[in-house]
């Protein structure tokens, strides 16, 4: 039973690995037979990061590639950091720029001249989203004095949302479909959660790491502490890891799905043109679902971040 589970997991993970890389492991690539079309992995290159940007042009394939500059990696201690911009870095920049334009633009519309009038149109929509996240997501979950954490959660929401949506555009790339990006966001959230715990609990913060039951005899306390402390610590790290993997997996899975369906359009179409309709319809449906998921995952990340902050602040009670 366990072995079967493991095999399933291996299969799933194997599907995520780049096929050409595995193919080349066998040694020198054998020349493909002439009548069998060469297997091309079009999905992985689309999803993973790269050093070139695609942009629309009239050349075959309707895309040109812009090579991004490469800078020398910086060494800090044992860590090597390659700061050269990649496709996902560029799309993070674009997402951040869009956040700035949209949100600061939205804030500008709140002129100080008429404080009792709400702005109209798009700015009002932005305000509604900001207020919704503030009043329905952050404040009820974080608890008293939750105002301090509102900008953090709002930034998370909008940044992830714009990164998600940019991935749905043609020639776009999903930066949030990269585990490094989601891991960094989860790391910030983790630090924020722990800092919130330290701020609120003070010395009692130790209680969230070392389990020390107060209402038990000492003979029970010691084994409980030895058993429960790793569990507590494990729980601390599981939450951000789950955050990172949830966002990454959701964004990646959706794109793999859409790309596979688009591939099926051509496979089915080459056999019989009418058959191409089915994968086409499904691709459109999945794309619409993806649009929903883009909002949903940004919302869930923001919601869980505020829930975690609220949990650690409640820990003492």
């Amino acid at each position: 039973m366990q072995r079967r589970l493991f095999l399933t997991a291996a299969l799933i993970l194997g599907a995520l690995l780049p096929l050409p890389a595995l193919a080349q492991d066998d040694g020198t690539p054998a020349p493909a037979p002439a009548n069998v079309p060469e297997r091309v992995d079009m999905i992985t290159p689309h999803i993973v990061d790269s050093h070139s940007l695609e942009y629309p042009c009239l050349e075959p394939g309707w895309a040109c590639h812009l090579e991004l500059p490469r800078w020398k990696p910086i060494h800090i201690g044992g860590l090597t950091i390659d700061l050269s911009p990649t496709k996902h870095v560029v799309f993070l920049w674009i997402a951040a720029a869009l956040c700035l334009i949209v949100l600061i633009g939205g804030a500008r519309a709140h002129g100080g001249s008429k404080p009792d009038e709400s702005p109209r149109g798009f700015s009002n929509g932005i305000e509604a989203v900001v207020l919704y996240i503030r009043n329905e997501v952050v404040l009820p979950n974080v608890g008293h004095h939750g105002d301090r954490y509102v900008p953090f959660v709002l930034t998370l929401f909008f940044f992830i949302l714009f990164a998600n949506i940019l991935g749905l555009l043609p020639y776009g790339a999903t930066a949030t479909g990269n585990i490094n990006v989601t891991a960094a966001l989860a790391l910030v959230t983790f630090i924020m959660v722990e800092v919130a715990g330290m701020r609120t609990l003070g010395k009692k913060y130790i209680g969230t790491i070392v389990f020390w039951p107060h209402d038990m005899p000492l003979a029970m306390k010691l084994p409980m502490t030895i058993i429960m402390t790793p569990v507590e610590l494990f729980g601390k790290f599981t939450k951000p890891i789950a955050l990172a993997i949830r966002l990454f997996a959701n964004m990646t899975a959706g794109h793999v799905m859409v790309l596979a369906l688009i591939g099926m359009i051509f496979t089915f179409g080459s056999a019989f043109l009418g058959l191409a309709v089915f994968p086409l319809v499904m691709a459109i449906a999945i794309m619409l679902l993806e649009l929903f998921v883009a909002f949903l995952q940004a919302f869930i990340f923001a919601l869980l971040a505020s829930v975690f902050i609220g949990q650690i602040r409640e820990a003492a009670h």
Binding site: L17, L79, A96, C99, F152, T155, N178, A184
Partner: peptide, 27 residues
């Protein structure tokens, strides 16, 4: 050149952190 879906990239993490924190402060 080959990067897989799970390959770590410290540069990208660094950029994410920098962009996010800058965005956080400015916004």
């Amino acid at each position: 050149e080959k990067t897989s879906l799970m390959s770590p990239n410290t540069g990208l993490m660094f950029w994410t952190l920098v962009i996010f924190i800058a965005l956080w402060i400015i916004l």
